[in-house]
Every structure is written in C-alpha cells, then in structure tokens.
Design a protein around this nucleic acid. Structure first.
Lengths: 212, 212
DNA sequence: TAGATTGTTAATCGATTAACAATC
DNA sequence: TAGATTGTTAATCGATTAACAATC
C-alpha cells in the first residue's frame, strides 16, 4: 500500500485461487522451470488461461513479455501478497479429531501459519503432545495467549461451545479467528473471522449431483 | 425439472448459502416459529435481506405475502432442492484424523449423507470401527463398493495417494467424489468432483488480516 | 389505515471473457 | 518472419442491489 493510496483491491475469488497457482509453481520450481505461461498453468489447474493471466497481473507477478511468468518471482509475489513469507504464530482450540488433523498438517508452515499451542477441556487430552504441539487446558487460554503474544486462533470446538470461547478470545485481544464450527460468531468489527463451512461444499456437491 | 425444460439455474453462491438458512430455520422450527421474514433471517446470518429473499425465491420456498416465508415449508424446499430429504449412502477413503473427524460428525445425517464404510491401508486401522463405521483395507474397495452399491466417495487420503485411489474409484463406477486432498483430480466428464481446499480459506483469512 | 412484507422488474456493479496491440 | 505470449482496453455476463407495486 503506497503513499498514493490503496491500489485497486484484489477480488476474493482471485485470492482463493492463489494457493492453487502456488502449488503448481512450487512443483515447477522443483523441476527447475524458470518461466511458465498462463496456458501451461491453465492445463494444470483447468482454469481458463485468461483468468490466470488476470489473477497474476492483479498481484503484480513478474513476467517476461512473450515468454510467460517467472516461476520463482511469481511464487514470491503470491507468498508476499498473502503474507506467507513470514510465519504467523497461531493456536488451536479444540483438540479433537479435526483439531488433530490440522495439527498434523505440516503444510501450514508453507502457508504462513505455525500452530504453537492447542487447548482442550478433556482431561485425557490435556498435557498430551500432538505432532509436537502441547495441549493445554482451556482454562489456561488467557495466560498462554498473553505469554506467547498470540493473535490468531483456529477454532475446532463443537458448535455450542464456539461463541463462548470466542468471547474469551476477544477478551484476550485476539485479532483473527479461523472458525470451523458451523456457527456465525459475534465479534467486534476489528476482529477478522474466517468461516469454514463444510456444509457449503456438501451442498454444492449434492446440487451438482442432482443436476448431472 | 418439468417437461417445459429446465428452469433458470440457481447460482452456486445461492446453493452454498442454503445450509446457513437451513440451520437457522431448523432452530426456529424447534422454537415453534411458523413464519420468518427475510429481515429476520438477515439478522441471524448477517447477510443482506434482499439476498435471502432472492435465494429463497430461487428455490421456490413457500411464503405468505406480507408475513414472510413459511419456516417448515422453506426447510423442506431447501432439503428437497439439495436432495437432503433422502439419505445418500457414501464411503470414506483415508481413515486418518480428518477421516475420523468426518466419520464422527453426526450432522451429515441431516445433510443427506450417510457414511457406511471406511477404507485405509494402515494395518492398525483396518478392522477398527470409528463411530460405528467399519474400516476395511483399501484392497477391498472394489468388493465392498459393488456389494453395497455405493456411488459417492469422500477422499481424505494424503495428496500423493489421491489420484491413484481416484482411478480405482472411477473404475468401480463411482459417480461423485468429495475431495479433501489438495490435488486436482483427473476424472471422466460424467464424474462429479467437489474440491474442498482448506488453503483457499487460509488465503482469504491472511489477505483480510493484512488489509485490516 | 399504516406499515411491513413479498413479488417483480430494473439498475448497478464487478468479475469474467474477448479482442487486439505490442513484442521478442 | 511467424508464432506465442503478455499487456491493456473493451464487451459481456450474471450476481447483487435498488426500486416500487401489490397486499394483508
């Protein structure tokens, strides 16, 4: 964001496609490819080439006229745009199966997210380590958050518990919540809530299945 | 779909919002409410009332002029539209943490999906029951699928295994795949693949966090 | 009646798509 | 040169939003 005011904002649709590009670029980079055209990327992602060209242009990905986009530079542009070039330390609340699945997903480190603590209320989970991450009792939330100065929460608790935990998180000064519970959370305007609703995907699947 | 040809198709955006409405309607129905206006629903979901009105009109939800939409009838309209009024039997491949999380999610029964089998290659998982669902060895895929006449697969295997399993599934005559692996699957045109990409949500969160 | 609401049509907005110039 | 590609502008399309009539 320069001194000349904000540039035209990038659409959510574009933002949500970026990780796809990043995965392909990462592979290509591994093979030693230096340039890639939008038609090449289109083949891999099965998106229209023009969409890809526009998306990459929107985030200012470097290119060579006539030859395509620079693989390494474009990776860096995406990572920089998403802030994935430095790690955000985050923590997880609700160390059930879903929580454990997320803790076990090593890919987050490449996505700017490092889970450094987990919380749960089940006595048999508290004190455990899942994938090297200590599980604390939820009662210790405030203390650990403040000590480690954490600002991002991943919420994988059962629906009925979500709003209560959220209120605590907000009181602790959390700035972002990635919510996997199927519940609309009430938060102050300055807290970012990213809702992950698995039912939406299922609905889409079912609708497409009916139509086909 | 009447004999006069297909009605104007409902947008994916609308489809993905339907489960939200269904949840609120379900609550209201539990309280005995019979009618609900789009402004009421807007308050609960924090979507613009006009969006809700349009969405519900698009699927032909019943209403009473001036009084709002009929709670029970609208629930039925959504469930019917999504095919959630009768259960689709499905199975899961990959009984790790994420798979176990999905098997443990009882909510699917209200969403038209019943997981009746799971598959994995880890010897210590095979033969187990997770939430009452038997885990078979992946080698038994074909036999079990045919015996139970299953058409819908939920894929929760590691990325590198996804395409291989998919080829097997396609050969078994599967019609739909709900894919949680961050991999674009290659399938014939008549197989529906619903891609669930967790990185998209994270990208959106990170972009919003940077902007705020 | 007044007011809140659905029903319906029109206007707006922005994402996608197309077109074509520039260029190596 | 010819061809493939980015760069850039314009056209299209469809979702969202607004407006207002009908009505109980």
């Amino acid at each position: 964001m320069g001194i000349f005011g904000k540039r035209k904002s990038v659409s959510v649709q574009t933002i949500r496609r970026l990780p796809q590009y990043l995965r392909v670029l990462c592979d290509l980079h591994g093979y030693g490819r230096e340039l890639v055209s939008s038609t090449d990327l289109a083949e891999e992602t099965r998106l229209p080439p023009i969409v890809i060209k526009k998306d990459l242009q929107a985030i200012g990905a470097p290119s060579k006229l006539r030859s395509g986009f620079k693989v390494k530079g474009t990776m860096e542009a995406i990572e920089n745009f998403l802030g994935w070039d430095n790690l955000n330390r985050a923590f997880l609340v609700g160390a059930g199966h879903l929580g454990a699945a997320l803790l076990g997903f090593s890919g987050f480190k490449n996505h700017g997210l490092e889970l450094v603590a987990a919380f749960d209320t089940h006595p048999e989970r508290v004190g455990e380590e899942i994938n090297g991450v200590r599980v604390w009792h939820t009662a210790q939330l405030k203390g650990v958050i403040e000590e480690k100065n954490l600002k991002i929460a991943v919420l994988t608790v059962p629906g009925p518990a979500a709003q209560g935990i959220t209120d605590t998180l907000v009181a602790c000064g959390i700035k972002a919540i990635w919510n996997f519970a199927p519940v609309k959370l009430s938060v102050p305007a300055d807290v970012v809530v990213q809702q992950e609703d698995i039912a939406s995907g299922l609905a889409e699947l079912c609708a497409r299945l009916k139509k086909s």
